[in-house]
C-alpha cells in the first residue's frame, strides 16, 4: 500500500483524464472539444490525456455553457462526484462571464460563483488549438497539485 501511494502520483501526473460537463452549452464548444480528441490534426491525446465517460475517473474537468437555471443542481452534483484533486477549465465565454447570455433570467452563471475555476479559455467557440493551450496549462496545474497531494 505504501509503495502504491508512492508510485501512483508519478503515474497519474503523466496521464490526466479529461471529463466534459455541458452546463447548458449551445454545443459549439462541445463540438470543438470533440474535435481536439477525434481529429488527428489536433490530437489532444499527445499530451497524455484522454476523455473518459465517468466523473469518478476524471482529473481535469472541462465545463462549457453558461450554467442555466435548470441544469445548475445536476451540474453541481456531477462536479462533486469528481474526486479531488481536480483541475477545472472553463471553455468558451459562457462559463467565464455568461457571454451573450449574460444577465439573462435563465442563467445562474458565471460558474466561478459556485466552484473553483483554474483555467479560462475564452472564445465563441475557442478554436481547437486554443483549447489545447488551455488543457496544457491545466496539466501544469494538475502536476503541481498531484505533487502537493503526494
Amino acid at each position: 500500500m505504501n509503495f502504491l501511494s508512492k508510485i501512483t502520483p508519478r503515474i497519474v501526473a503523466k496521464s490526466p483524464w479529461l471529463y466534459r460537463i455541458n452546463a447548458g452549452s449551445c454545443n459549439g464548444c462541445d463540438v470543438e472539444l470533440a474535435t481536439t480528441a477525434c481529429i488527428p490534426r489536433y490530437d489532444v491525446e499527445r499530451l497524455g490525456c484522454q476523455y473518459c465517460g465517468s466523473p469518478k475517473h476524471a482529473d481535469i474537468v472541462l465545463i462549457t455553457g453558461p450554467l442555466t437555471a435548470r441544469v445548475k443542481d445536476k451540474m453541481l452534483r456531477l462536479y462533486d462526484e469528481i474526486p479531488d484533486p481536480k483541475v477545472t477549465v472553463a471553455v468558451g465565454v459562457c462559463p467565464i462571464s455568461g457571454g451573450v447570455f449574460r444577465e439573462s433570467y435563465a442563467i445562474e452563471g458565471p460558474i466561478d460563483r459556485y466552484l473553483p475555476v483554474d483555467v479560462n479559455v475564452p472564445g465563441c467557440p475557442p478554436r481547437p488549438q486554443a483549447i489545447i493551450e488551455g488543457i496544457a496549462q491545466a496539466i501544469a496545474i494538475w502536476r503541481a497539485r498531484i505533487g502537493e497531494a503526494a
Binding site: 475555476v117 479559455v121 488551455g134
Partner: peptide
C-alpha cells in the same frame, strides 16, 4: 491573435 487561455487569477485583467 487567439492565445487567450489564461489562469483564473487573470480573469478580470483581460
Amino acid at each position: 491573435n487567439w492565445h487567450l487561455a489564461h489562469p483564473q487569477s487573470e480573469k478580470y485583467t483581460q
